[in-house]
Design a binder for these strands. Structure first.
Length: 109
DNA sequence: GGATTGACGTCTG
DNA sequence: GCAGACGCCAATC
């Protein structure tokens, strides 16, 4: 069973997200060829079970902290991002497009 | 085993 | 440009 579950792939990729950077579900789904951005979010739902997965760096395409409610505390996600230098306002990442980290471009190319 | 839900995205109106 | 509907695959009920 050398093949890892798609969840593990998501964890590995999320772990590769640099400090002060954020990514979105579509990019991860596209890079891992999951076929659906929902799979990414679903996988990240178990990210806390895996541990060490900076899921707070993964947001939806709008830059919203959609999964903040899945965190132990809704404010934790925003606090973590701000702690990394990522400004978050109204539950949305400021300059999201600028801080966006695309695995396909950063890793594949 | 069928129906519903889910941290989303893209298309059409 | 904004709003609504559909599609995606997997897990849970």
């Amino acid at each position: 069973m050398a093949e890892k579950n798609y969840q593990i792939r998501v964890f590995e990729l999320v772990r590769q997200i640099p400090y002060g950077r954020v990514s979105n579900y579509g990019a991860i789904a596209d890079y891992l060829e999951l076929g659906s951005a929902r799979m990414v979010g679903w996988a990240l739902n178990s990210s806390f079970s895996g541990g060490g997965v900076p899921a707070h760096r993964v947001v939806n395409r709008k830059g919203e902290l959609s999964g903040r409610k899945r965190f132990p505390t809704p404010t934790m996600m925003q606090d973590l991002l701000e702690s990394e230098g990522v400004r978050v306002e109204n539950d949305r990442v400021v300059e999201f497009k600028k801080l966006f980290w695309n695995p396909v471009v950063e890793l594949d190319t």
